[in-house]
Design a protein around this nucleic acid. Structure first.
Lengths: 123, 123
DNA sequence: CAGGATCCTATCCGATACTG
DNA sequence: CAGTATCGGATAGGATCCTG
């Protein structure tokens, strides 16, 4: 929505940044910081996981939303998806290099918030 | 929602992390990574800003959502709010130390995504 | 096991109007 | 300027059922 061309035509003296609506990064940021996307990326930081492992790892996510989030992250090039042709089928997800790059600040973010909220529990 | 007590009762051999639904950090993470919260925090990284400066800085945000996001961030202790008793009224927002701590990985996140999406434009 | 399709509801969020 | 209040449409997201 609001796809109008929006240039950074700020008066040169402006002291604040402008985030234009058509910035392509906004979509990716949206997916990354989506309700479940962030947990997917953090979960996959440690190791590759299968679909059901992700579902069990991320408390409260529904299969629908997990699949949807994964699709968006794969499309953005943050997550890869490998299908093992077996019965029962096996699908594994993992981070691409871009995904690791992005997951790192997210993990840091989560860590800082957790530490601040429960100083004694976070060690 | 879903405020049930949820302990980390995973089998000790589990290789993946569990994010329980009652984790208090989840709410803060939610606010921080909310649609507008992230841009507020990044905007305030540079310098303190007044309400209208934030509104103009963050393309596409409505007054309602900006006010709502700011209230949540103030309640979480990430942002402070200073009212200058003047006519017309003047309200300035800025980051607390916690806010700067949290804003840093967010800025890093945004930077990495931007660089990846437009390698030649992001320098 | 890994999902797609459908339905339906909660909430998000923008537009508008009004206040101190 | 810096908000609040209310309304209504869009959308996110959960529950359920079904398929390869």
């Amino acid at each position: 929505m609001a796809e109008g061309v929006q240039l950074t035509q700020v008066d040169s003296g402006a002291r604040y940044e402008v985030f234009h609506t058509d910035c392509p990064a906004r979509d990716v940021v949206g997916h990354v910081t989506s309700r479940w996307g962030i947990w997917v990326l953090i979960s996959l930081q440690g190791n590759d996981l299968r679909f059901y492992e992700l579902r069990e790892s991320i408390q409260g996510v529904s299969e629908k939303m997990l699949a949807q989030s994964l699709r968006a992250l794969v499309a953005d090039g943050l997550v890869w998806r490998r299908v093992e042709p077996a019965t029962p089928p096996q699908v594994t997800y993992g981070l691409t290099e871009f995904g690791r790059e992005v997951g790192e600040p997210l993990t840091e973010l989560f860590g800082r918030i957790t530490r601040r909220l429960s100083p004694r529990d976070a060690r």
